[in-house]
Design a binder for these strands. Structure first.
Length: 797
RNA sequence: GCCCGAGUGGCGGAAUUGGUAUACGCGUUCGACUUAAAAUCGAAUGGUGAAAACCAUAUGGGUUCAAGUCCCAUCUCGGGCACCA
């Protein structure tokens, strides 16, 4: 009796794979027909000091199962691996311990690599990349310069999110509920000069191409909402007593213009200081100062409207009447024009504001009878709107805008919620921005031949007191000569998301020294066919699309969407259903699971069997034993055979399983694929097995438990090429047909496959059943329904 | 508040196109092996009921010969966005 020893088997095969460089991507050249390529990747990990966790294992196991599936189908497969290494944890660790981030990162990578190898992943290890390696970030800097050349990387002074603990600016996407995504501190607003990428230039295309992607619906809607396109109009309001001053507003409801009874400006609006009257000046300035200082969380918590009158009036161009101009923090400077026309009768926020400050409310849309709310924001016929009375609001939008257009004070406009991507960080451990400033403070690109701008070594990694990164402490490094002119380097570094916005393309030629990616290799391998991850729904997955479109425009990429199919996997939670965390002490360490004797195959198979890949799952210490038992049974069938079956015994189940597993792999139904293999094994235990049964079992098992399957295939002296199936063998000679009476199950018939199409025969067989007969009142049914292919008879009485 | 998901045994889940609800696994119970235990193998396992049968896919309605699946309303949970004019 041989015993299944996963640790021994896994060591053996991992060594063989390493020596043979088994997973090195190959470009086959078959003259007769082109070989399909398949580029798969997981979202590369941030290598933390804690090592791999079970979430990584799930993510990598999904990609691995598919990698092996396509490899077994003899496609040209590229499955690389890399590390996203710039970031705050390494820098904070350096500040605390004095150990340089390079050193700590290298250790963590070595550990991650070692652990990943113990899981037996089919990775092309010759293509490993690391974003903090100068050979890599040289090209991140090159990407920045391309964007800079085209004006898509620019500097702007503006109010920005600032984390007082991490001492850095944060992007909108890095602020969660008013708190820093890294340390959880409440963020502040700070006025600073910052670098931005002009992602808004691609807003339209980023939105319109979402629907063509084979991505989960929830990611697509999240991106659509984030981009937040709305169509409306820009309208200029003349200031009373000053015909040359206008305030522009954005509105999606120009049809309600006659009901605009006041204007509201954001506290940051530049016109405020120009228009406010002397007697209101003090109150207005005071309000603006407090509002700007208020954190977003304070603005949200206190939803009651606040505001102050400027003392100035504007003219409603539709009515010619003068309307007061107010300031309130419910109007945001970053959206539209930072100013609105308030229509309190048809907008709840304006209504609240008007109520509080006792401002006039004029209804201009007819309310349906069944609407009782005071503030109606639906559609209807216009009223109180002079020549537009009676016009449907949906038509009036266009009518009023063209009328304004004739007067030269309005036009159609599309606005987006999405803002430009803030990319500068006042941190040491990031990719240095390849910019230097001349004596007058003008930014200049570091010329390409001077790249990479290498990280200087520093003694102390803390940002300085002015908020500049530790790079400012490297005095010699700061000085640079460009075209004979002495300049000072930028001390900000790039947001880590910049590094991950092009890494998929680096994978095709990771050692290329003449370009970020080799055009020939890109043409062959990219775009990525399958990409798998469980995070970054809007940030990373939007940025990489943006860069793809940009580099396509510049002629560097022959495609406009970087990821064809996205698999978005769920989290693995602790057995109690809660998030795993060190502080709760409920963390399951995958290496412990392997070492406890289960082995990597059991761990991987279990994580794919635990539930649908795209849903969260709770770890079960007991259930993993079931998977281990299953693999033991697979092992026993090959190494401790008991019964030999003849050629026909398992013909149906064998073909059925091959079909089922193949189809499940295509639709990423890993849990049901494993279940089908379990059924197959149960059947083989009952019936006995022949070599053909076992070869097919081993081949189908390989994507999940590659070590054991390899061991089985070796014993069976078979290769691992993915099996096909014989469709004609799927059907048994005799099938079960169900008989229902009024949709309720009453009897089961055994019917020869040849009789299945004979409805007369089926009907008489069904009606002859005792348990059917007794329901028939006159011995005759009303109707008998035999749906094609359903193996079901419904007798209607 | 708005926009997406989801709700099925004691538990994780299956049912892919409207056609046998509960596959597969865990747990539980019984049996075999064993001095015994573990491991392993086999059997049973939605609920009520002696049985016939009835009731069960969050709740209430509807469409259909037939509904977990489609339609309408409601509730609950998860996620995203959140004063975006």
């Amino acid at each position: 009796m041989k015993k299944y020893d996963p640790i021994k088997i896994e060591e053996k095969w991992q060594k063989i794979w390493e020596e043979n460089q088994e997973f090195k991507a190959k470009k086959s050249k078959k003259s007769d027909k082109p070989v399909q390529k398949m580029f798969l990747a997981e979202m590369f990990p941030y290598p933390s000091g804690a090592g791999l966790h079970v979430g990584h294992v799930r993510n990598f196991s999904i990609v691995d199962a598919l990698t092996r599936f396509y490899t077994q189908q003899r496609l040209d497969v590229l499955r690389p691996f890399g590390y996203d290494t710039f970031g705050l944890p390494a820098e904070n660790y350096a500040i605390k311990t004095g150990i340089s981030p390079e050193v700590a990162t290298k250790q963590n990578i070595d550990n991650f690599r070692k652990q990943a190898k113990r899981l037996g992943f089919a990775i092309d290890w010759s293509r490993e990349i690391n974003t903090s390696d100068p050979k890599y970030y040289k090209w991140t800097q090159w990407c920045f310069l391309k964007l800079f050349e085209k004006g898509l990387a620019y500097q702007k002074e503006s109010y920005q999110w600032w984390c007082p603990v991490d001492q850095t600016v944060l992007a909108n996407e890095q602020v969660e509920n008013g708190h820093c995504w890294r340390c959880g501190t409440e963020v502040e607003k700070k006025k600073m000069k910052q670098w931005f990428f002009k992602i808004t230039a691609y807003a339209d295309e980023l939105l319109s191409e979402i629907d063509s992607l084979d991505w989960p619906e929830k990611i697509k809607t999240a991106q659509k909402n984030w981009i937040g396109r709305s169509e409306g109009a820009e309208i200029s309001f003349e200031i009373e007593n000053d015909k040359n001053q206008f305030i522009k507003v954005f509105t999606t409801r120009p049809d309600t213009l006659f009901g605009a009874t006041f204007l509201v400006l954001a506290p940051e609006h530049p016109m405020i200081s120009k228009i406010m009257s002397e007697d209101c000046k003090e109150k207005v300035l005071d309000y603006c100062k407090t509002a700007i200082k208020k954190s977003e969380i304070e603005r949200q918590e206190n939803k009651e409207k606040t505001g102050v009158f400027t003392g100035a009036y504007a003219i409603n161009p539709a009515t010619g009447k003068k309307i007061p101009i107010w300031v309130s923090d419910y109007v945001l400077m970053g959206y539209g024009e930072g100013a609105i026309m308030a229509v309190p009768a048809h907008d709840e926020r304006d209504f609240e504001f008007a109520n509080k400050f006792d401002l006039p409310v004029i209804e201009v849309i007819e309310k349906p009878d069944d609407v009782t709310e005071k503030c109606y924001h639906g559609e209807g016929k216009l009223i109180n709107s002079d020549r537009f009375n009676g016009v449907e609001s949906t038509d009036a939008r266009e009518g009023i805008v063209s009328w304004l257009e004739e007067m030269g004070i309005g036009k159609m406009k599309v606005t987006y919620k999405m803002r430009d991507w803030l990319i500068s960080r006042q941190r040491y451990w990031g990719c240095p921005i390849p910019i230097a400033y001349d004596k007058d403070g003008n930014p200049h690109a570091i010329p390409e031949y001077q790249l990479p701008v290498i990280h200087p070594e520093v003694e102390d990694y803390k940002p300085d007191s002015t908020g500049r990164s530790a790079l400012a402490k490297a005095k010699d490094w700061l000085k640079v000569t460009i075209d004979g002119e002495e300049m000072t380097r930028e001390t900000d570094t790039l947001d880590g998301y910049a590094c991950s916005s092009w890494y998929l393309w680096r994978y095709v030629s990771p050692d290329c020294e003449t370009a970020a990616w080799d055009p020939e290799e890109i043409k062959y391998w990219a775009p990525t066919d399958i990409y798998c991850g469980g995070d970054h729904a809007v940030a990373h997955l939007l940025y990489i699309r943006f860069w793809c479109k940009f580099f396509a425009d510049e002629g560097y990429l022959p495609f406009r969407e970087p990821i064809k199919r996205l698999l978005y996997n769920g989290y693995i939670n602790a057995p109690d259903g809660k998030k795993m965390s060190k502080s709760k002490g409920n963390v399951i360490d995958p290496l412990d699971v392997i070492d406890s004797g289960y082995g990597a195959d059991t761990l991987r198979t279990y994580e794919l069997f635990i539930g649908p890949y795209n849903e969260d799952a709770a770890w079960s210490t007991k259930a993993i034993g079931g998977v281990y038992r299953f693999l033991n049974r697979c092992f026993n069938l090959v190494f401790n055979p008991e019964k030999e079956a003849d050629e026909k015994t398992n013909l149906v189940i064998r073909n059925k399983t091959a079909k089922k597993v193949t189809e499940d792999m295509h639709r990423a139904g890993f849990n049901t694929a494993v279940a089908a293999l379990m059924e197959f094994v149960n059947e083989l235990y009952k019936n006995g097995a022949n070599r053909e049964d076992l070869v097919i079992l081993s081949k189908l098992l390989k994507p999940f438990a590659p070590h054991l399957a390899s061991e089985m295939l070796e014993e069976l002296k078979a290769d691992d090429e993915w099996p096909t199936w014989d469709e004609s063998a799927l059907v048994a000679d005799v099938v079960e047909v169900v008989v229902q009476v009024n949709g309720k199950l009453r009897a089961k018939l055994s019917v020869s496959i040849d009789d299945l199409a004979d409805t007369d025969k089926l009907t008489s067989l069904a009606l002859a059943e005792e348990n059917v007969k007794k329901y028939l009142v006159n011995g005759e049914p009303k109707k008998v329904i035999i749906p094609p292919k359903a193996k079901l008879i419904n007798v209607v009485i």
